[in-house]
């Protein structure tokens, strides 16, 4: 039940929420019985059905698999989708700033990175975002505990307690975090943003909380027909992300640091 509506969600989440509210009311009992009785527990069921009513738990660990072979050169669909979804496109360059500096000061959650092997010359493209480590250095160093790992594995910032010391940015090996350098006038309700705090990719936590197991970047990549990013529950062997990871070898960036990242890459 859960996976079908998931795809619809990608097209029109609003419509889905209305439908799901009704559908869940009607069929929740049936699905529950099926999951427990016939298939045993599968995580996707309670993750992708309805808005969350129970606090997140460590039954899930959200993560991604990126197949760099499918990541197309010059395509920025994931970046654009993230910008739209999380209001990053609403950032305005302050008057009197200079363009080059601004590009390093504006918040970025996901980047397209293009690499070339020094020996073979082989070119690889990949999206780079917060790697949602199991042992995140940013969480270790945060003096107030504002940088935290949610029970379901999402690393994020509680901006209510962030004092803007930027130590997490020093600690992150992936340059995943951004500091908000300027006054923010326009923002989306689902993506609060304010001067003086640090933020980064939160795996579209608001979508998960609404009951939709998807991220803007993965959806956009799929909509382009590339399917380079697969999102899902790393703890569920039947999830799309685990299935994809089972098919080919994948690596973590900076594997030497043993952070056990939630984002894995094939072909790097």
């Amino acid at each position: 039940m859960s996976r079908e509506p998931d795809r619809q969600v990608n097209q029109d989440r609003r419509r889905f929420m209305g439908a799901a509210a009704g559908a869940v009311a009607g069929s929740a009992g049936g699905v529950g019985a099926l999951a427990v009785g016939a298939l045993g527990y599968t995580a996707a069921d309670d993750a992708a059905a309805a808005p969350r009513t129970e606090p997140v738990s460590d039954r899930h660990r959200w993560g991604m698999f990126v197949d760099t072979a499918k990541c197309a050169e010059g395509c920025t669909a994931c970046v654009d989708a993230c910008d739209q979804e999380n209001g990053l496109n609403l950032q305005a360059e302050p008057h009197g700033s200079n363009e080059a500096k601004w590009q390093n000061q504006r918040a970025v959650w996901i980047r397209k990175v293009k690499l070339q092997d020094k020996t073979s010359g082989h070119v690889t493209n990949l999206p780079l975002m917060c790697q949602h480590c199991e042992h995140p250095p940013c969480v270790d160093v945060c003096p107030t505990g504002a940088s935290f790992k949610r029970a379901d594995g999402i690393v994020m910032v509680d901006r209510h307690t962030c004092i803007g010391c930027r130590y997490c940015m020093m600690a992150c090996p992936y340059k995943a975090r951004s500091f908000i350098h300027e006054q923010v006038d326009q923002k989306l309700t689902r993506a609060p943003r304010g001067m003086g705090c640090v933020e980064s990719c939160n795996l579209c936590a608001h979508r998960l909380d609404e009951g939709s197991a998807s991220t803007a970047c993965a959806d956009a990549c799929a909509a382009e027909g590339h399917h380079a990013i697969v999102f899902g529950d790393l703890k569920d062997p039947t999830s799309a992300v685990r299935q994809a990871m089972a098919k080919q070898p994948s690596r973590q960036i900076r594997e030497d640091l043993e952070l056990n990242t939630g984002v894995r890459y094939a072909g790097i």
Partner: peptide, 18 residues
């Protein structure tokens, strides 16, 4: 409202929708 939106725009699930 240092951080939060001051008009309903791009809302995620909230009380009103619930």
């Amino acid at each position: 409202f240092d951080c939060h939106a001051t008009i309903p725009e791009g809302e995620a699930w909230n009380q009103v929708m619930a």
